[in-house]
């Protein structure tokens, strides 16, 4: 329980660092994905901790996964466009 919460926190902070520090475009997207995963982990842990089983966090995580998939898709499309026009895979 606490372990998972701590894990989620650690993942979140690592991802936060990754977003700012990585230069490669894809790495930045991955860092953001890890970050959302940390949040989902937190939510699922919270659902587990609730007396009985709380369905609302699961619904939120499902919605969140859908949102993350679509944002990642858009981000990857942008990366492809950027590579095509700027011939670079790292940007300031």
């Amino acid at each position: 329980m606490t372990f998972y919460l701590l894990l989620a926190t650690a993942l979140f902070l690592m991802a936060l660092y990754g977003v700012f520090a990585s230069r490669h475009l894809l790495r930045r997207i991955l860092a953001l994905n890890v970050m959302s995963t940390a949040v989902f982990l937190w939510l699922v842990t919270v659902a587990r901790a609730a007396p009985g089983l709380d369905p609302v966090p699961h619904a939120m995580v499902l919605t969140g996964i859908v949102v993350t998939v679509s944002t990642t898709a858009v981000a990857v499309v942008l990366v492809v466009r950027l590579r095509a026009s700027h011939r670079r895979h790292d940007l300031p």
Partner: peptide, 21 residues
Amino acid sequence: ALVPAWRYFIATLLGSTVFLM
């Protein structure tokens, strides 16, 4: 507009995820 769009996207996604946390 591609690079500005990219930077905006990363910033706003980061903002949303922090918000979600």
